[in-house]
């Protein structure tokens, strides 16, 4: 019985090399997650460890040698397996990343975040036609809203050149709770939030939400819809959400 568990654990742990250095990790883990954890500086925009890897920004490219075949692949959605040899910063990889940066810059030329990342790879301009969009369609906002917040207010609409991310039918969102997770997670900072004393606006989704004021101190601490969502998820009584986090700790 103990032997069984030991072999199982062995199956779970895999040995692989990164730039010639031998490492161990858990089978099936995201390669990018492991590499970032080990301190390798790999550019990435569409990856966040809180959500499923999606592989759309194409920046986390690495070379993976498996058996006799070597291929260039996105590391965020590459599952860790036994005996792979990973190269993170070869001439080939740098060349590919440069092109990807150029393509991203063509889509979104005016993002300071993207510009500074690209500059690290010596890319300051793009040879492709500039589209002057503000979104790179990485889908992080959509995944965070679905997987972390659990609200499902966003999705991809259309496809090809018409693909867009947002609320259904590109109309103002009816379900967004104004939590601001998408604002926080957006790598090119194209989802803006406007905070007024009594309301919060998520500009990109055209969502205006009233703020809940604390019953005791009167501070508008969160959008009411966000609190309702939290109540739904936690099952706590509504009275709990009528007080701001600071006042909750104060004993009567």
């Amino acid at each position: 019985m103990t032997a069984d568990i030991a072999t199982q654990a062995q199956q779970e742990t895999v040995t692989f090399t990164v730039n010639g250095k031998t490492m161990q990790g858990r089978r099936g883990d995201s390669l990018l997650k492991v590499l970032l954890h080990e301190g390798y500086d790999i550019p990435h925009l569409c990856y966040h460890e809180a959500v499923t890897a999606y592989g759309s920004c194409r920046l986390c490219l690495v070379e993976v040698k498996k058996g006799r075949k070597t291929k260039v692949t996105t590391s965020c959605n590459y599952p860790l397996m036994d005996g792979i040899e990973v190269t993170t910063n070869s001439e080939k990889i740098r060349k590919h990343r440069k092109v990807v940066f150029e393509l991203l810059l063509a889509q979104v030329p005016n993002s300071p975040e993207l510009q500074s990342m690209a500059a690290q790879y010596g890319v300051t301009d793009t040879r492709f036609e500039k589209k002057y969009q503000d979104c790179i369609l990485c889908g992080l906002c959509e995944r965070v809203c679905r997987e972390v917040v659990g609200v499902n207010a966003l999705g991809f609409m259309g496809r090809g050149v018409e693909k867009d991310v947002g609320a259904p039918f590109k109309q103002p969102s009816k379900t967004c709770i104004g939590c601001g997770a998408c604002v926080y997670v957006c790598p090119v900072n194209c989802i803006k939030e406007e905070q007024l004393p009594t309301k919060r606006t998520i500009v990109r989704w055209e969502r205006n939400l009233p703020m809940q004021t604390c019953k005791r101190c009167g501070y508008p601490f969160a959008p009411t819809y966000q609190l309702l969502q939290m109540q739904k998820q936690t099952g706590l009584p509504w009275e709990f959400f009528e007080l701001c986090p600071d006042c909750r700790d104060v004993k009567d």
């Binding site: 991809f156 609320a167 259904p168």
Partner: peptide, 11 residues
């Protein structure tokens, strides 16, 4: 969820 339905319908 509505975004999924709308996403398919527009795809």
């Amino acid at each position: 969820p509505m975004p999924r339905v709308a996403g398919l319908a527009t795809f």
